[in-house]
Design a protein around this nucleic acid. Structure first.
Lengths: 225, 225
DNA sequence: ATTATCTATAGATCTATAGATAATGC
DNA sequence: ATTATCTATAGATCTATAGATAATGC
């Protein structure tokens, strides 16, 4: 099962050094897996311990309570910010808005398609955290930091200023991607669901680029007519 | 609490006709409320019965098992389709795409802001049903039926054919609204959250109308320049 | 006789703790 | 002495059922 697991026939007492692993880390990962699959109430402390191959009371040596395990999962494996993805982008890409948008969208999808990221969204979907103010706030921050980029593009004349506020533009770009995450990028997603999400999101990026950067595209369009 | 409730001091035996109410309906509504608030595992059969002011075993007179209650909640109070909203729209509105889009979006929001609708999305968010194939399928159908309208508009020349497929357009319009539902239109949403959702979605509709029906808007735009 | 309710309870969990045991590291 | 594990168990649920009770409707 896991690296630490040595089965249930383990003998009493502290195990020899050779057998010791990252028990706490293994417990956290097992907790994430089970919470994502069955929800908080649907997961027993016993089940988490058994998943790692230990007895349930070990868990209380590492965490104060069941709730503390849940909180630790969120805190330690918690949501990787979309802002980080944005900041990691090559700044020179900003001179080519369509390329910037395509790259950004692809990178976000890479991030959200990772197994742990998918388990986290499932955990949130299992336990009402989708409605959590923390998530709404996180989305506000992400959209806000993308809005800054749109503001620059408007100032630079890459797109019409009358379309909507930078924030509206950022929301129109990001929210279809966020929805794809909720619908298809869950813990138990099959490869074909990942592919659907990826295509859906790529198509959205194309539509967005064409509709929003039309001013620039129009010139090209007029040329070919 | 509820119409049926007569407190815990109720005497044994079948209650007189005057006191009888729609027990099954009250149990279903109580179940929806609690499942939406605390999730399936977080809600006990006892808690549902107590909410209605009855003892827990009454529930087994109406439903075979706890799971059967949950299924009945979904089946009887289940998702009101967005397709119904679309079909209820005045067909003559289709000649004015911007008005059509604004009206559609407002009507969907009315639907999703209703208390029972919000409790349902919370129930789904509490129990991993957000990832359920049934919901994904429902969204596919809704977007699909809206795509038909976009196809007509493209044929009628209301918008450029090269923007994206009718399906892409429908997804770009609907998914930010669907995300708003998940984020703000939950069971415990405060009036200010409902207002945020409504404004967010209205602003999105405006942006969408301007960006997508630009061909039509451009004429107007050129006039004023 | 049937229906709608109640009380009581069996049997299966679940969380959390107490106390035992054995390896580690000073 | 400390740390990491185990076994055993207390006490609190939870689901589901059995059997009692009283009103209803034939």
């Amino acid at each position: 099962m896991t690296e630490t697991a040595a089965g249930l026939g383990r003998r009493r007492g502290r195990p020899p050094k050779a057998e010791a692993g990252d028990t706490k880390g293994a417990l956290l990962q097992a907790a994430l897996t089970l919470f994502a699959e069955k929800g908080y109430e649907g997961t027993s402390v016993r089940a988490i311990a058994r998943e790692v191959g230990l007895s349930e009371s070990v868990l209380y040596a590492h965490f104060d309570s069941k709730r503390a395990i849940f909180d630790a999962v969120l805190a330690e494996l918690g949501p990787p910010s979309a802002v980080a993805v944005l900041e990691a982008l090559d700044p020179t890409l900003a001179d080519d808005p369509p390329a910037f948008v395509r790259t950004l969208v692809a990178r976000i999808l890479d991030e959200w398609a990772a197994p742990q990221s998918r388990q986290l969204i499932s955990l949130m979907a299992q336990d009402g955290l989708i409605h959590d103010p923390a998530l709404t706030a996180e989305i506000r921050v992400s959209v806000g930091s993308l809005a800054v980029q749109f503001e620059r593009w408007i100032a630079a004349g890459y797109l019409a200023a009358d379309l909507g506020s930078p924030w509206d533009l950022a929301y129109a770009l990001m929210s279809p991607i966020a929805l794809a995450r909720v619908l298809w990028l869950h813990g138990a997603a099959k490869p074909e669901e990942l592919a659907i999400a990826r295509e859906r999101v790529a198509r959205h990026a194309e539509l967005f680029v064409k509709a929003v950067f039309r001013a620039a595209a129009d010139t090209q369009y007029a040329d070919t007519q």
